[in-house]
Amino acid sequence: MAQQSETGQSATIRRGIVPLLIFAALTAAMDVYGSNRLQVVSPESLTAVSFTLTAVFFLVLEVVRNGTAFLTMLRDSRHDVVAINITTAVTWLATFYALRNLEPAVVNVVGLALGPVFILVTGAILRRGASVIAAEVVVALGICVFLSVLVWGSFTGETAVGDIGESTAAWGLFFSVVCAIGSAANITYMKRLSDRGRSPQEVLAVRFFLMIAIGWAMTATSSLDEVRAALVPGAVVAVIGIGLPIYVLQIGIRHTEPITTALIVSLSPIFAYFMQFLDGRLQPSPLTIVGIVGIVALATAGTLARARHDGRLVTATVPSAYDTDGVRR
């Protein structure tokens, strides 16, 4: 029986890890594509178009499938709904502005790899009782060391974008850190809604209201040509950068703890590093690949440690198939 439970636990972990790995790859693709397009399209127009298209799709999908039942979240979980709208807006606006200034792989690694560090803080505050093991704390601290190396490289011109100046690097890193904080809080609130039985489709139907309002407010001074130029890039970002990745992320979150989610998602930079060379502006950077490989190795170690820890817990809590007298029941 214990062996069957361990097998079931492994299957549950796999159900969470596979969607999270898909999310990591899609996020990398979005960062590379978005960084390229944001050189010619304003972040404001891209934000307005992409999030409007995503929200309309998921709203229509949810209404067709389940009517207006998802609106009960606005009553039963209104604080979490407001919070996830705010964290979504903070995370994505920071991402778009960071991508205008820094190498996509660096934005990706700072924005995602800092996640485990902030999850340790936000999880303890927002989801009391959430478990964190010693190995995950060590991994989070190790990730901070490698991130400091990448930060140094951004200021000294050692990354793929070359010498961009201290001011540009500082703003890019500032927005990347803001993205990391927002992403960590976002994952935690998504987990809270999932814990309350809300499906990924329901959450996606209500999480973009603030983002849409901010996006169109910011385009108020933009010309019609600027908005029109963002239509195709906005549609691409809506699919590969928002809708599909967030959907698979929500599925992964249902089967993993937030700290585990953050560790797996932090593998995304390795995808971004190799994808970004499809953009002719960028050149290989040894410093970036060293930092990314180090972070990937730590994230993998943390994920495996969590899997072993959860497996031991399951084994310890499964009742024995035998009573104390040795008779099988």
Rank of each mutant, 00 (worst) to 15 (best):
218 M>L: 14
150 L>D: 05
110 V>I: 15
117 V>Y: 01
300 T>Y: 04
73 M>E: 10
217 A>L: 09
134 A>D: 15
27 T>Y: 11
123 G>H: 01
219 T>Y: 01
148 S>F: 05
89 A>D: 02
49 V>C: 02
117 V>H: 05
256 T>E: 02
327 V>H: 11
20 L>T: 09
276 Q>T: 12
322 Y>L: 06
241 G>Q: 13
278 L>W: 08
55 A>M: 07
191 K>L: 01
201 Q>K: 01
257 E>D: 08
174 F>I: 05
133 I>F: 04
55 A>G: 03
18 V>D: 00
50 S>Q: 09
303 T>F: 03
182 G>C: 00
105 A>F: 13
291 G>C: 13
242 I>A: 11
243 G>V: 12
6 E>D: 05
143 I>H: 09
321 A>S: 10
247 Y>H: 15
227 V>A: 02
61 L>C: 02
39 Q>T: 14
66 N>M: 10
8 G>Q: 10
300 T>N: 02
215 G>F: 00
218 M>F: 14
104 P>W: 14
110 V>E: 12
286 P>L: 13
139 V>H: 00
149 V>Q: 02
185 A>M: 13
81 V>G: 00
90 V>F: 05
256 T>Q: 06
85 N>S: 09
291 G>R: 03
33 Y>G: 12
266 S>M: 04
289 I>W: 11
127 R>F: 14
42 S>M: 07
164 I>M: 03
181 I>L: 14
96 F>I: 08
315 T>W: 06
49 V>D: 03
275 M>H: 13
281 R>H: 12
249 L>T: 05
208 F>P: 05
97 Y>W: 15
244 L>H: 05
312 R>N: 13
127 R>G: 03
66 N>L: 14
62 E>N: 11
